[in-house]
Computed example of a mutant assay.
Amino acid sequence: MAGFYRTAVGKKWVMAITGLVLMGFVFAHMVGNLKMYLGPTHYREYAEWLRTGLLVPILPEHVALWGMRIVLIVAVGYHIHAAYSLTMLNRRARPQRYASPRDYIAASWAARTMRWSGVIVALFVLFHLADLTTGWANPDFTAGDVYANVVASFERWPVALFYVLANLALGVHLYHGVWSLFQTMGSMSPRFNPRHNPLRRAAAAGFTILVVGPNISFPIAVLTGVVG
């Protein structure tokens, strides 16, 4: 297994599998945050269930949540390592820079900016945790009151703007990530047909809009007074 991971194909498969895990998380996270539109009571009940009631009584309190966190941390770690390793492999395969401007007909803008959108998303996640989980970056943070914390955070327009921009970067990353996932996993199937690429692009765009659209609506809703 370790030998397979050392290959470029193995790293692409790890990127695809960990990408699936992370895409599932961002989708579930978005759906859960839609509770905000139902009011503070529903949102707080959802947050409390997530913190203490997930898979209870099958598992003790907090166990499922921490298990999910560990899986996400491992997935993020392998995703970043595989991406970095593939970049290094590509550079070693072509140690000299291109002598003339590159032709980007085959490579989309999303693909060419993949590493930068990934860096932006990673930095945003760190800020997001400091802002709404630990409260280090939110001077009005109240432990346990997720609704009030979200409102207090997004009432600061620089934070709201950063949230919107970071989610646009997430959208770029998701679009190419879903597309690459189809390419990596589909290419191993005997039924893989390049003629279906327009459908794959549409699926990538649809999933991206489904996640990023509601995410962007949250800070806008607070700034405009729809939520508050």
Rank of each mutant, 00 (worst) to 15 (best):
I209N: 08
L54F: 15
P198T: 06
L38C: 10
T52C: 13
Y175G: 02
A82W: 09
M1Y: 12
L210I: 10
A28T: 05
H196P: 00
T18V: 10
A202P: 02
P57R: 09
V63N: 10
W109K: 02
N90F: 00
R195P: 00
V159A: 03
P101M: 01
F182A: 03
P214I: 11
K11W: 08
W136C: 03
V71Q: 07
R91T: 01
H173A: 01
R69G: 07
V125I: 15
G24M: 04
A28I: 03
R92H: 04
A16Q: 13
W179S: 04
L126K: 14
N193L: 03
G213P: 13
T87G: 02
W49N: 10
L168C: 07
R102W: 00
M114I: 05
G177L: 00
Y78Q: 03
L20R: 15
V56S: 12
L123Q: 11
E48C: 12
Y78G: 04
V226I: 13
T7G: 02
A83P: 12
F27W: 02
A28F: 04
M1L: 10
S180D: 07
F192Q: 02
Y98H: 05
I58A: 12
A122H: 14
L181Q: 02
A99H: 07
N149R: 14
W13T: 07
V159W: 11
L129T: 15
G177T: 06
L199I: 11
L22S: 08
L210P: 14
V159T: 08
M23T: 09
G39H: 11
G10N: 08
M114L: 08
Y175F: 09
R112W: 00
T134N: 14
I209R: 08
P101C: 00
A130N: 15
H42F: 07
M88D: 02
N149Y: 12
G3D: 08
L132V: 12
P190K: 09
P194W: 05
M36N: 08
T18H: 11
N197C: 00
A82R: 09
A82D: 06
Y46F: 13
A75D: 10
K12G: 07
V146H: 14
A107F: 01
L54V: 11
A202Y: 09
F127S: 06
A152R: 12
V14L: 09
R200H: 03
Y163D: 05
N90E: 03
G144F: 13
P57E: 07
S217C: 09
V76L: 11
A202E: 05
